[in-house]
Nucleic acid binder design. Structure first.
Lengths: 155, 155
DNA sequence: GCTCAATCGACAACATGTTGTCAATAAACC
DNA sequence: GGTTTATTGACAACATGTTGTCGATTGAGC
């Protein structure tokens, strides 16, 4: 199997695993009133150490402002986060976790740890780390390749 | 770093890589009139060896009928595929590649090979295979876990 | 102090996937 | 052969992400 074939197989597996992971995250948090996406927003706010604006949370997550904005609106309607006035910016309110939000996030985190322990039972930690390193390296190469020019124009 | 922490890091990297790969696939095929999703449908039809119905293509790709149906409708409107009558089933038409569709798929495949060779330049084929195996094993464990441990949906 | 570029939140349109529902068709069972 | 069950395509509603655009606000440069 050539390098290209091996890479193609890995890419297809990443797609499948991504779908399976999102489904698992949804199932894991459904009865908390969360989803994978909502959980991710709560995590960004909880782990930031300081209140974030919507745009700041989006940067922290690698998503767009707009995607985060919609999730924050929903989370605020459900009482998981609140929007506090920002002394530094009149329009850009600060997103903070409510008590409900903190509870839900902590519960989700606990479940995720138990779940991760369960599904990686047969895996060597070193293998997990090696794969993470490879995927990270691959993504870095991929982003470099995107920047360095669209190949369809060049060739 | 514990096994759970290593697993969490790997999961987050899978999410990021998935997004980067989709963006790369879109960029790679944009001027052919394709996207990552359309390309995938063409691939399923091209590699099946025989004409597929929409539902059959969906099964082959691990997606839902409805997602594939919409893509097939668009691809047919753009002349990449055609719907041929199915002698075995009056309603379930067969999806076949048109000449345009074959050309576009072949072009996309060529580009993907060049692209994969480029971005995996520094990777050992054995590492790529090892990671693929690990991700596949992880997904299998994850799907087993979902089946056994999601009683809140069943009850 | 005034202008102007950058940033921010809001809204709209779209892409891609999901689930739920429905009627038509095919297949299986008795 | 007739009834039941499973599959299929269609449609609708929703979840999650994107890009584009707009006006408001901030801050930097002159």
């Amino acid at each position: 199997m050539s390098r290209v074939e091996a890479a193609t197989a890995l890419i297809l597996e990443v797609f499948r695993l991504n779908g399976a992971l999102l489904a698992a995250g949804d199932a894991l948090t459904r009865d908390l009133g969360l989803t994978s996406a909502r959980w991710q927003v709560l995590g960004a706010v909880a782990l930031a150490g300081r209140p974030l604006t919507v745009a700041g949370a989006a940067r922290a997550m690698g998503l767009t402002r707009q995607a985060v904005r919609r999730l924050v609106t929903e989370l605020a309607a459900d009482g998981f986060v609140a929007l506090a006035p920002n002394p530094d910016h009149r329009r850009a309110a600060l997103v903070v976790l409510t008590e409900d939000g903190q509870r839900a996030y902590a519960a989700a985190q606990e479940r995720q740890a138990a779940w991760a322990a369960r599904v990686t039972e047969g895996c060597e930690p070193a293998s997990l780390r090696d794969s993470t390193t490879l995927l990270r390296c691959l993504r870095a190469a991929l982003e470099r390749d995107e920047e360095s020019g669209a190949p369809e124009t060049g060739s």
